[in-house]
Write a protein that binds this DNA or RNA. Structure first.
Lengths: 261, 261
DNA sequence: AAGTGGTCTAGACCACGCG
DNA sequence: GCGTGGTCTAGACCACTTC
């Protein structure tokens, strides 16, 4: 077992630094130990049973504290192995005013990019897809879903749907979806994007390697051609701890600003 | 107790519709009951002890399922009273390309708006505030924090900091912060906004009346005067289930996207 | 006073990783 | 095979709301 984590709970004063339920006191105690660098990123935490013994709490209570930290991403629990302090994660910034691709974002940061294909093919559209893409009843759609990975860390899940009229053969999409659309002369020129937050479900959390219930950014994007037709309908889920969306806002109706300029 | 929820767990087949851990099976079972309208919004769920008795599970296991639903906001737990299906929540849209105020957003939807003041006064700046606002070492800041409420539902927490050079008397801020800044000739003309998702901590979750760990949108906004000086530094936390940010994107540099990997 | 959710315990079995 | 996290149980006390 690791030595530095040993002294964390023996002192007996870990209780007094907080108040309220025991599991919360323990939780904030561990949290502070991580923040102050008393335990280093990547290091293992003592096992739940050990912490229980050291603190005099039951394992259930210890577990509750650790689980909450895991849900927040400060800590990673590995069955059969142990619990480890999560590696530090610097947020990626993405502009909200220009349409950039994932590959672009990452390349700018000098990170290695990988994609794991999850689905790529022609399908019958769902009712939602039919509506959003404005399809005729006989139209089919191409779906390309992939897990986006940067430096071996899964960052986002992308689920794109395109009418086969604009993308007849999804297998030709190898790297950038936009690159392929461009080759076909169907590159979008504008898009509407909706951003909201939600707790990740089991499936998505597992893919992104975070705890179930961790916060994620849901992004729904609809892209338009110059002609105004809808090309692409993409639902993405980003890790909340890995992404930061940046937008520049301008004042709506402001007479003073106009005059001053 | 309510009658319609009675039959939910007696059948004995609630287990077979799912697989995996019992608490997950129960969780998805209740979830479906809500989705399909088998239990109505606002109705009470049977008590944890009752569900335990009906399903043959222990209360701990039942509790785990219910708690997860509470964290997701599908259900509200009221100590001493019971657990209730949460009222349906329609999302509010907010544009990301124009700077609008909360009051504006809500007024457009025809909702009643309230604010609960949490902090309003002059303070010594934190290191972060000093840096972001570009303060001299002797400068003081005005802080105005409030809980934003629409139709009696808490929607967001707003914590704004302004240098006293631009807002000498925060007590004069009654409704819109921007309105007051405008009166003083210090209305911002542009802003940079960062959006990310995170699980809500105890304090914020309590204020927003959602479960601890529910997903929230963190928004940090820095507003600029025409002169380029920083006026305002605001950190807001929005309920993930209540807000939807909308952005319109334009294609930046087309060629870069193709080349980027 | 009775019932509710909130917390906590002690003990158990499982599947899995690792040496 | 041993230790880990993952799940589950039965029973307990508390603070609170409701009647």
């Amino acid at each position: 077992m690791n030595r530095q984590a040993q002294g964390l709970f023996i002192s007996g004063d870990w209780k007094r630094e907080s108040h309220g339920p025991l599991y919360l006191q323990l939780q904030t105690h561990i949290e502070k130990a991580i923040e102050t660098g008393r335990i280093l990123h990547g290091d293992p935490l003592p096992s739940e049973r050990e912490i229980a013994a050291m603190t005099g709490l039951s394992r259930v209570t210890v577990r509750r504290a650790v689980q909450e930290l895991a849900r927040r991403g400060l800590v990673v629990q590995k069955p059969g192995s142990g619990t480890f302090i999560a590696p530090e994660m610097q947020k990626v910034e993405q502009s909200l005013s220009t349409l950039t691709s994932f590959s672009e974002d990452m390349a700018r940061r000098g990170n290695s990019v990988q994609s794991r294909w999850m689905e790529k093919g022609i399908f019958a559209p769902s009712p939602e897809e039919t509506m959003v893409l404005g399809l005729a009843s006989t139209d089919m759609v191409a779906r390309v879903s992939r897990l986006r990975i940067a430096d071996n860390v899964p960052m986002a899940i992308e689920r794109a749907t395109i009418s086969t009229r604009f993308l007849p053969d999804p297998d030709l999409v190898t790297d950038s979806l936009y690159a392929q659309l461009d080759r076909l002369g169907n590159k979008p020129v504008r898009a509407i994007q909706r951003i909201s937050a939600a707790n990740l479900g089991r499936t998505d959390a597992d893919l992104l390697e975070v705890g179930e219930g961790a916060a994620g950014l849901n992004i729904v994007r609809v892209s338009y051609l110059q002609s105004g037709k809808v090309v692409e309908f993409t639902r993405s889920v980003y890790r909340g701890d890995a992404y930061d969306f940046v937008a520049e806002l301008k004042i709506g109706n402001n007479d003073d600003a106009d005059k001053a300029q």
